[in-house]
Each structure stands twice: as structure tokens, then as C-alpha cells.
Computed example of a mutant assay.
Amino acid sequence: MEVTVTVISDLYITGIKLEGGLPERSYLNELPAIKHLKQMEALPITRRVTFFVGENGVGKSTLVEAIAVAMGFNPEGGTINFNFSTEESHSELYRHLTVCKGMKRHKDGFFLRAESFYNVVTNIDAMDAEGMDPVPLIDSYGGVSLHKQSHGESFMSLVENRFGGNGLYILDEPEAALSPARLMRLMYRMDELVKRNSQFIISTHSPILMAFPEAEVFVLSEEGISAVPYQETDHFRITKEFMNAPEKLLRYLFE
């Protein structure tokens, strides 16, 4: 499938493509998202908010991680200035991924991944303990150690205090720490940041989050990579069916 990437001047990332072959025995060759991306000239990104959705194991988080690392972010999360590493667990996909960039460069940015957020928080506290900066780093995150807050509270402290606009924000399954009410609070903050010339690239399972207005939803599956209305995703359809008739679905499930 050939896709022409149109450069949009107010986006920081306008597309992604794979160049060169992956190692023959790499597990990446078996991930549906990667297999289909290899067959495309490029995957265009045309909206300020882009979601990658799909079943477990299709390669959503792997792809989002590769985009973040290719853009210079620390593989475990943080800004481009974070360089700590607790475990070299990220894939080599970023070495083969070309990120198509727009005319403007982002002035702020953050890679937020649920599974290693604890390590980012620990690193922030460690840098402040060293006292190398006259202004504590934690002041940029709300002034209270993120370790002294719940998982969801610390996520929101980060988004509401550290994300400043004119930024590129790459999020991997942010719903992992958030209640439905906090998810809508996240969406409110995202809207504020989008209006301040920000761009989001997000992997998610949340049908609430992917309902963000004018977002583009890419479904990654065994069949391919396709842009669909969020109402046509399995996440939305199954959740809606369950909420409309939970007893019926539970009875069917347990019979």
C-alpha cells in the first residue's frame, strides 16, 4: 500500500516509515504493526492527536516507543534531557524508523509510559537530592514528590504542571493509572495543550480517551493498519455492548 505523506506545517511529526530491513531473526518481524508498516511507503500523521489502538501484542507500545526514541526521548520516559537507564529493554526498531518532521520544531516534549513511570519519578527525586540545580526539578512537576502521590495523582501532576504547550507529547497507555473521571480531566488538559500548538501521539485501550474530538484513530491488527472512526473500534463496540446489557453478556460469557 503506497501512501503519500503531506507535510503539514503546524505538526511536529507528519508521518513515520520503516527504511532498511530488520534483522532476520528479530521478533519485531512477527508483530502485525511492524509487518504492515514495512509494506507501506509511509504512515501519514495529519492530526494534532493520533491514537494507536489494537489488541495486546500487535505492537502498539513498541511502535510508540520507537517514535519517542527516534525523536530523542529517553526510552524509559521523560524529556530529551533524561538519560537514566534501569534496564535496556527497548527494541531496536527506532534504528530503522524514519520520523517525517514538519516545518516547526517542538519547544517542549515528554515521553510518558505507564510501565516505567516509577523509574522516571525516582530519577527526578535523585537529581533533586544531588542539589546540582538551584531550582528543584520537582517544582516543574507541582512541587510535591510524585512518589508521595497515588499513581493517578502523579500522572495528572505531570500533565498539568510539566506539559507547557508548543510540545510533542508521546503517551503509552496513560489510562493505566487513571479513573474515568481522571481520563476526562486528562482530555480537558490535552485540549488546552492542543490549543497551544501541541501534538499528541498515544497508544491506548481506552474508548473514552480515543473519543477526543478530531483525533485520528489508527487500528493496528493482523489485517493491516487502518484509520477508522473510534465508534468502529472493538474497544468502543465491546464496551458499549457490555454497558448496555452487562447481565446478558456475562451470562453468555460464563455459560
Rank of each mutant, 00 (worst) to 15 (best):
T233K: 09
G165W: 10
T239C: 08
L209Y: 05
A176K: 05
S226V: 13
F155T: 15
F236E: 03
Q149E: 12
P174E: 03
G224R: 03
S198H: 11
Q199G: 06
K240W: 04
I238A: 12
E222Y: 07
F218C: 03
L220A: 02
R196W: 02
T204L: 06
I202Y: 05
M187F: 13
D191G: 00
G224V: 07
A215N: 07
P207E: 04
S154A: 15
I225P: 01
G165H: 08
G142S: 06
N166F: 11
R185Q: 15
H151A: 14
D172T: 05
F163A: 03
S221P: 11
V228C: 09
V217L: 05
V144D: 11
Q149Y: 11
T204Q: 10
G142I: 05
M187K: 14
S206V: 02
L186W: 11
P180Y: 00
N197A: 12
V159S: 00
M210P: 02
F163Y: 05
S150H: 08
K195C: 06
Y169H: 12
S179L: 06
N161C: 05
Q231Y: 10
I202K: 08
V194I: 14
E222N: 12
M156I: 07
P207S: 10
A177D: 08
M210A: 06
L158P: 00
A215M: 05
F212K: 02
P180D: 02
F212V: 00
P180N: 01
G143S: 01
M210N: 08
M210H: 13
M184C: 07
P207F: 02
I170W: 04
S145A: 08
L168R: 08
K148V: 02
G167E: 00
D234M: 10
E232D: 13
L193N: 01
L146G: 12
E216V: 15
T239K: 10
D172E: 12
A181R: 04
E216M: 14
D191I: 02
A215W: 03
I202C: 12
P174C: 09
F163N: 00
R196L: 13
V159D: 00
R196Y: 01
P207T: 13
L171M: 14
S221A: 12
L171K: 02
M184G: 03
N197H: 13
L171H: 03
L186M: 13
I202N: 10
H235D: 14
V144Q: 11
G167W: 01
G152K: 01
L186Y: 11
F236N: 03
L183E: 15
N166P: 00
A227E: 15
Q149T: 13
F236K: 07
Q231C: 03
S198A: 15
H151N: 12
I201K: 04
P207I: 10
E153F: 08
I208H: 00
S226D: 14
A227M: 05
R182Y: 11
A176G: 04
S179T: 15
G152N: 07
L220N: 01
